[in-house]
Amino acid sequence: MRWIWIDRFVEFEKGSHAKAIKNVSLAEEHLHDHFPGFPVMPGSLMLEGMAQTGGILLGDVHDFERAVILAKVPKVSYHGWVVPGDTLTYSATLANVSEEGGLVSCTAHVGERLVAEAEIVFAHVNADSGNGAIDQKSFVFSMRLLGVMDVGKAGTGTK
């Protein structure tokens, strides 16, 4: 399994906001354990989806030259179940960005229904900080993630 919890971006405005979708399928093994006979998308993975949407939005600000790591989730709340067959739409808005990191506000909707919302703080890690920082650019662009960046609406208004 690859740790990619968004299927595709559908909107991407550089330095502003982004929307990604995630289709929930009963083919996902973990749904059979969460829970047996009652498959629902785990809240932690919705948070991961929001973090990936927001993290790529922030990484793009510096053209993925800086390593972006999830540092803190000051707030997260869940409002309803998400079940197989649902399409989650993750929306991320860049609330603040600085040399040190960024703050992103995120929501998750199924249709019009708000199912989760979160604030996420990311930190920039220097490649020379000795923390084993990963190469962000190759992470995003080699892990077959490139396809998720084929967005419906890019910053220029073109595909």
Binding site: P74, N96, S98, E100, G102, L103, V121, A123
Partner: peptide, 12 residues
Amino acid sequence: IDFLDIVFRLEK
């Protein structure tokens, strides 16, 4: 990391 969060929120 909270100090970064605090600065972000104060700015806002």
